[in-house]
Design a protein around this nucleic acid. Structure first.
Lengths: 149, 149
DNA sequence: TAAGATTGAGTACTCAATCTTG
DNA sequence: CAAGATTGAGTACTCAATCTTA
């Protein structure tokens, strides 16, 4: 009765925990690429990835696309502008917003890290195999749906 | 040629990013249970879950079991002791270590949050279905394997 | 008044250094 | 000197408040 009960909660079978472990393991495995080589934080790398994909965005657009907090984006963008990775221009249609875009240097970083990211991703998918990868991606999409609350 | 290329990196198909999105969505969904109701951080809740499962551990044991950083554990444990959730006792066999265990109050918290966690987990698995859940858990285990490096 | 964006204050995290015991 | 555990300093995050324009 007082021994480890099969009715007791086991963190090791809790999906949010298992998801976090896999997310951290795979994120840490890729971290050296943007961190050691380019001195970027994960937030900065994600902003570069979004600007590289969409071409130009406002800060709010980056927030929506990446689910990064607006204060993180604001501070990261300021530093990335100072480092010459992106440029800011007033938004023609909305005086409150600013149009953010990668500079040539930022695009070069995107191209280089992006290539390594695709290679890293392929390696992960190879480890899983095609069927398991498809099943995983589908499950993650279901779990990522934002519920009202 | 300069339009969004199909050869360019897409964060939305990058497994570490997708894993992070799902991990955050599911973690945030459960957060109110330990945070609002008991004023616990995720680290504190994880420590309770580990002590609840294993009965008693040293700080290093918690680190190994949960992959939480040792300084996080040290500071969380100090605060949890002050709040009466766990107790410390000198380890008989090793004068450097301390044996950590839940108090009656800590066990009550574990029982209550644990029950809600199992319910939350069941709901997630129901959303996925049995086959998808099994495939997901297996894939997460593969991706969580710590690689040398 | 709301939305885009920034700032300030408090908290928490990260990394190295430290203390104690094996 | 290595291992368990804690502490300090610097950085980053979180949440509320603020500023400007729609």
């Amino acid at each position: 009765m007082s021994s480890p009960s099969e009715n007791a909660f086991d963190l090791g079978q809790f999906l949010p925990y298992l998801l976090n472990q896999a997310a951290e393991a795979t994120s840490l495995g890729f971290q050296p690429v943007y961190r050691s080589t380019h001195g970027l934080s994960r937030t900065e790398w994600r902003i570069i990835a979004n600007l590289g994909k969409f071409g130009a965005l406002t800060a709010a657009g980056i927030c929506k696309a990446s689910h990064i907090d607006k204060t993180k984006v604001s501070r990261a963008v300021a530093q990335m502008e100072a480092r010459g990775l992106l440029s800011r221009a007033p938004d023609i249609s909305d005086g409150r917003a600013e149009r953010l875009a990668l500079t040539d240097g930022g695009r070069a970083v995107f191209t280089e890290i992006g290539a390594q990211a695709m290679s890293y991703d392929r390696a992960l998918r190879d480890r899983l195999g095609g069927d398991a990868t498809r099943a995983l991606v589908k499950a993650l999409a279901v779990l990522s749906e934002r519920r009202e609350g």
